[in-house]
Design a protein around this nucleic acid. Structure first.
Lengths: 113, 113
DNA sequence: AAAGATACATAAGAAACCAATGTATTTGAC
DNA sequence: GTCAAATACATTGGTTTCTTATGTATCTTT
């Protein structure tokens, strides 16, 4: 099973920023794989979604980049800027709040395991 | 406070369907007001978002409609069809699952009130 | 009588993502 | 040692979905 794509909309940026907050620096491909791992394949970020997101974060000054050479191949690392770190906290807590609201709205009871 | 609009994306259809599941039949304006009430103004569905959504649900056979006259004014009620009811269950449980995944991803601890 | 709430709806545009495609290097299996 | 798969960057065209703005009309309250 994996989620219908519309659910990812609006949360992708927050996911990416949170990962960067926890890992100091990551490169694009690494992000897609990490999310895949962490969610047991339920969320698969496509590159067509990821790169525009990273570039827009960079354009907004929320992340900085540095290139590293691995053999002949360039690897582009992304890190949160100070303002990116603040923004990440905001976004994560907004999403947490939103999820509480949705839980109430949808009357979702915690699973009794 | 109200949520940044991108968060609503992808959940609107589910919210509307869940409301219809709980209330048998509702009309458009009523839905916008109910959501506003239930979320203490945090989520405000605009009519420009709602009506296209309702029409698409109708086109997909998930809701049926009936007109009622209140004085001279037409009020259009929407109800879930049998397949709409099934779809609602699917959507709600998918969203619940998604939220669990997001919680884990974002490492959100329950608020200690 | 006027303003605000109720109630339907559409249209143009923006945002955000998906699917497809492209390029190139490195690794692992046989 | 070669070929497929994985790694790693990225862009483009298209679709979906929402926002903002607008339109029409009725009902209620002051």
């Amino acid at each position: 099973m994996n989620y219908s794509s519309e659910l990812i909309k609006g949360t992708l940026k927050t996911i990416v920023m949170k990962l960067l907050a926890d890992n100091k620096k990551m490169y694009g491909y690494e992000i897609t794989q990490r999310v895949k791992e962490l969610t047991f394949d339920k969320i698969q970020i496509t590159e067509g979604a990821l790169y525009p997101t990273l570039h827009s974060l960079e354009a907004d000054g929320l992340v900085t980049t540095e290139n590293e050479y691995i053999g002949k191949r360039v690897r582009k690392y992304y890190s949160l800027s100070p303002s990116g770190k603040n923004k990440t906290k905001e976004k994560v807590s907004e999403l947490a709040d939103f999820m509480e609201t949705m839980k109430f709205l949808l009357d979702i009871k915690p699973k009794t395991v």
